[in-house]
Simulated scan of single mutants.
Amino acid sequence: MMEKPKGILYVVGVPIGNLGDITLRALEVLKNTEIIVSEDTRSIRKLLTHYGCGPKKLISLYKDVEVERTHKVLKLLEEGKEVVLTSEAGCPLISDPGAYLVREAHRRGIKIVPVPGVSALTCALSASGVDLSSGFIFLGFLPRKKTEQKKVLENLPENFPLIIFESPHRMEKTAKNLLEILGNRECFLARELTKFHEELTWTDLQTLANREKFLGEITLIILPQPKTEEKPLVKKKLAGIKKRIKELKKEGLKPKEMAKIIAEEYNIPVKEVYQLIAEG
């Protein structure tokens, strides 16, 4: 007896706000697949109704029931059913449940078909103008407690932009914590992306920490602290300066006088010359 072929799991990106932001391919898959798994079935039902996709079997997959529901969905896939996995908004698994389902499906030899779409992460980055040539660090939602946030943020490299998601009811407190942990930094606030009250603003953490009200989901891009310009003395120049210090000492000049002369001669800060004189 031949083994029944397994089903297909479609991982489908959906709009993050504006219902027009969906691909033709995603709509085709949604229309032709009878079982749809989503973190919030209310959101996907609204989308299906808007595009006339017909009645579907909807399965909610939120954090508290993720493991239990995953095994229910895997059973359907192993019976040969086709299933769509969507997020409440955006691309599945980007700070949303579903990773366990996709990994288990891979492990069991079930075919995975990605149907990409919009993401708040890429949307905010592309609208910010941030130079991403050296990379960035995406953290999703930070832990709720400040002590846990501190652990995460203080152990990161300092030379990459940081991107976080945050909900409106937590943003006021998170902004204050970010300012305390990271110091004041330039940042890009992307709020209510693709919606009527969309806000795209370059600001800083100090300003955000003083803001009293945030409405709508937030994507925040935090730039690294600007590097203070260091002007290290070139070895060759350093040797010449040290020689000049000895010469001026023999002439009986005071440190202040020597520093002024050498700073002018070598076009370097007086402070650096003082340091060299003090080092002997």
Rank of each mutant, 00 (worst) to 15 (best):
98 G>F: 04
128 S>D: 03
103 R>C: 09
106 H>E: 10
101 L>I: 06
111 K>C: 07
119 S>C: 05
101 L>K: 04
115 V>F: 12
103 R>P: 14
90 G>S: 04
105 A>Q: 04
110 I>K: 08
109 G>E: 08
91 C>L: 15
103 R>H: 13
121 L>N: 02
107 R>V: 15
94 I>P: 00
109 G>C: 12
128 S>W: 00
118 V>D: 00
120 A>W: 01
120 A>L: 08
90 G>C: 10
114 P>K: 08
97 P>F: 06
126 S>P: 05
111 K>M: 08
93 L>C: 14
106 H>L: 12
121 L>M: 11
128 S>L: 03
108 R>F: 05
92 P>A: 15
90 G>N: 06
99 A>G: 15
111 K>P: 15
99 A>Q: 11
106 H>N: 15
103 R>L: 11
105 A>C: 11
110 I>F: 10
93 L>G: 09
94 I>L: 11
123 C>N: 05
125 L>A: 02
119 S>N: 09
97 P>C: 08
107 R>E: 11
116 P>F: 14
115 V>K: 01
96 D>L: 04
114 P>R: 14
96 D>E: 15
101 L>D: 03
129 G>V: 04
97 P>A: 10
110 I>P: 07
129 G>Y: 00
91 C>Y: 05
115 V>G: 03
93 L>D: 14
109 G>Y: 07
99 A>I: 15
119 S>V: 06
98 G>N: 09
110 I>Q: 10
109 G>Q: 14
108 R>Y: 09
127 A>M: 10
96 D>I: 08
126 S>K: 00
100 Y>C: 13
95 S>N: 12
94 I>S: 10
130 V>K: 01
98 G>E: 07
116 P>Y: 14
109 G>W: 07
106 H>T: 15
100 Y>H: 13
102 V>S: 12
125 L>I: 12
105 A>R: 01
106 H>K: 09
130 V>H: 02
125 L>D: 01
98 G>M: 05
126 S>F: 01
102 V>N: 06
95 S>A: 07
108 R>N: 12
109 G>I: 13
104 E>K: 07
94 I>H: 06
105 A>P: 01
125 L>G: 01
108 R>V: 05
103 R>F: 15
102 V>C: 15
